[in-house]
């Protein structure tokens, strides 16, 4: 048993740009990172930070310029490692003329599964991603979100120990995002290692044991999300029981009415909840939920970059 599920060592990738005189562009710059078995790692960063490049290097879809990537103690691209991993590419695309079930049976076959076994597993997985009813439809008729779900199902067809998901939430509606979050949570509960990338911070919240934050091809910080210094930019408060007038008397103007008598209140930074909550209980308004709104990853990176440049200046 390898010590690490995933290990990146000084992983670097240059892409040649231009046709005649190739001027290399560094997509990934000496990234080192270890992921332990059973961890759920959020690989976060804005678009173009090198997240997809890292995943392609792990799948050996591209070759590193220098450094190495290992999965389960084996070099990237090793067939024995591939037997034990699953991979959802970014904006996945499969074969138009196949049905979801046929795709999973084909891919199952590549793992040596007998057709009957593969079919059983396909129907379990398609139920799990909510496509049970659509499994006999050709993929050409699938929406983006449905393809995303098929992509997750095919990544699990071999019951993998390590699952790589590249932007699993992109292109999904709110229900899809919730389902995907649930799915990742269940993968974690099953003891699998999950490595997923996202450019949206909130995707990582409540899911990840750890996050790694990438900016411009470099790993800028890793750690538990709570330990990272994200600035709180306000809170989202959901209440019920009061009426609009009562809330207005508190001087809270950013109020929207939600269904079944609930209200969503945006609390700015200068009205922290510990000030507001006592007043609410005075007005017999029940608090349904309270969520801090963090700064976006972009803002965080801007701040990091500014802070890094400041001493040098």
């Amino acid at each position: 048993m390898a010590r690490y599920a995933i290990r990146l060592e000084e992983l670097t990738k240059d892409y040649p740009i231009g046709f005649w005189r190739s001027r290399p562009v560094r997509a990934l710059d000496h990234v080192s990172l270890d992921v332990e078995p059973g961890e759920v790692l959020g690989y976060l960063g804005p678009n173009g930070a090198g997240k997809t490049t890292t995943l392609k290097l792990l799948m050996q879809l591209v070759y590193p310029t220098s450094g190495r990537a290992e999965i389960l103690g084996r070099p990237a691209g090793d067939v024995e490692a591939k037997r034990r991993l699953g991979y959802l590419p970014e904006l996945p695309y499969f074969y138009d003329n196949l049905t979801a079930e046929e795709l999973l049976v084909y891919f199952g076959g590549l793992f040596g599964l007998a057709p009957a076994v593969a079919r059983t597993r396909a129907s379990i997985l398609l139920d799990r991603v909510g496509l049970g009813a659509e499994r006999r439809r050709r993929l050409r008729h699938y929406s983006k979100g449905m393809l995303q779900r098929v992509g997750i199902a095919q990544a699990l067809v071999n019951d993998p120990e390590v699952v790589f998901l590249d932007e699993p939430m992109s292109g999904l509606d709110p229900v899809g995002r919730r389902d995907t979050r649930e799915l990742i949570r269940s993968l974690r509960d099953e003891g699998r290692t999950v490595f997923f990338s996202s450019h949206i911070l909130s995707d990582a919240e409540a899911l990840c044991t750890r996050v790694a934050i990438m900016v411009q091809g470099r790993l800028v910080s890793t750690g538990r999300l709570a330990d990272l210094a994200f600035e709180v930019q306000g809170w989202e408060l959901v209440v019920s029981g009061g009426d609009g007038g009562a809330l207005a008397s508190l001087g809270l103007d950013a109020v929207t009415t939600a269904v079944d008598g609930r209200y969503v209140v945006e609390l700015p930074v200068d009205r922290p909840p510990d000030q507001v909550l006592p007043e609410l209980s005075r007005l017999h308004v029940q608090v349904v939920s309270l969520t801090p709104r963090h700064e976006s990853l972009e803002d965080y990176f801007m701040r990091l970059v500014a802070r890094r440049q400041a001493p040098a200046a």
Binding site: Q60, Y63, S66, G67, R68, P75, A76, G77, D78, V79
Partner: peptide, 8 residues
């Protein structure tokens, strides 16, 4: 330093 699965 790059490691590739090398076929003959």
């Amino acid at each position: 330093m790059t490691e590739r699965s090398t076929q003959w």
